[in-house]
Design a protein around this nucleic acid. Structure first.
Lengths: 226, 226
DNA sequence: GCTGTAACTTGAACATGTTCAAATTGATTC
DNA sequence: GAATCAATTTGAACATGTTCAAGTTACAGC
């Protein structure tokens, strides 16, 4: 069960070959159609060896997820370095998510459901995915704090986590999107990012103060469970 | 693949026995721990017979879902007949969802993930689950329209579908809730239902008009995909 | 060079969802 | 009552994720 980190060069080679074969095959055939035997076969190792480095097929998905996160982070680095406007930063970041994931669109459905399973070790609220989740949340913290938007501290504290949830919602929509060029998802992104930024601007209105407090308490309560 | 509806009394008996055995076992052992062989065994039929009436194990989950929906609808009927206040109706309805589902809490995780899988025939946005989804949406339409709340028509038109989404979100939270008596979920329900009703009251404020239109367009766009 | 040990590798074995061709049943028709 | 035929039932066979005990490798210490 425990993940065995390779301790020799030979082990590193094997682990890397298995991971690389898995990523390729997931992309080529999808998650379910990729068998552990096929992964082992392409990696040039035996079936049992795969289980030495990855406790289950699901754990290979986690690596897949990490892979796309790294692509995404690299893709938006220039934007985050250059741009100050929050709406532009947010829109660019979320657009980049779906652009980065586009090659995996056909695969994404089964992967998402694997990850959404609360009893899976991989579910984003749970233990195994925690390091990766924190990386993504940190990325959204940079999106927010690197902007020139003036956001009340109580809102700013919870915004990155909320944006991470928002990203997951967009991805779920994207999975169902069959429109050419995934245009509908891009439209929804443009709409929602603008809406979010606008609502952030309204958060200081007296009439919304009460609701804002409620919402913040709620988000804190919901997320601290994870 | 096609679902075979029983055409003889004998077939009806078999189908009913399989379904009943499945519901019992899902509750006793959970979804994954229940094997098709165990279902067939308890139902007193052979393994192959189960597949004559239910194309897959997942399809048995759909029946499970339908079962809880019927329990839920029955549970809230008195409330809906008596009460006029929207906040009370909504809170009672959502509370009843988690109360009804409580016996299945341990099982709910894997069931939810099965259902959330976009490539599953069962996913709530897709085809096979459509009739049931429409029943649930209709139930929320009754919650809204049977109240004395005065809601703008454009909002009222989309509210039931939105509340259905809201119910799914609450259920997802509930699945993770390990607090005694599921108190945290009940708290979140109280908070969110009050928030929803309050925001509905604010929807007519001029400053929110623009956002309201945006939000409605968005919800329509998101849901018509299904 | 030898030995011991930890790391690594292997593939057979197992459990379980699913398929399918063949067997059985039971009602309808003559 | 015999023939027919669709509905139903059966269980063996298959694919695949996972486990595990046994085998192999390679390096550290002598």
């Amino acid at each position: 069960m425990a993940i065995a980190l390779p301790k020799t060069r030979r082990g590193e080679t094997s682990r890397a070959a298995i991971l690389s074969a898995a990523l390729d095959l997931f992309q080529e055939r999808g998650y379910e159609a990729t068998t552990m035997r096929a992964i082992a076969g392409r990696a040039g190792v035996s079936l049992g060896s795969s289980y030495h480095y990855f406790p289950s097929k699901e754990h290979l998905v986690l690596e897949f997820y990490r892979h796309t996160h790294e692509l995404h982070a690299a893709a938006i680095a220039p934007l985050l370095a250059r741009e100050q406007d929050l709406a532009v930063r947010l829109r660019g970041t979320i657009r980049a998510v779906v652009v980065t994931c586009e090659p995996f669109h056909a695969v994404a459905g089964s992967i998402f459901s694997t990850v959404a399973n609360p009893s899976s070790p991989l579910n984003p609220f749970g233990g195994a995915a925690k390091p990766l989740r924190e990386e993504v949340v940190a990325l959204y913290a940079e999106v927010v704090h690197g902007s020139d938007a003036r956001i009340p501290p109580d809102v700013a504290a919870l915004l990155p986590l909320t944006l991470w949830l928002y990203q997951m919602a967009i991805l779920y929509f994207w999975i169902f999107d069959r429109s050419p060029g995934r245009l509908r998802t891009l439209e929804v992104i443009d709409e929602t990012t603008e809406l979010i930024v606008r609502l952030l601007g309204l958060a200081n209105l007296p009439v919304l103060r009460g609701s804002r407090k409620r919402i913040l308490t709620l988000i804190k309560s919901v997320t601290e469970q994870a």
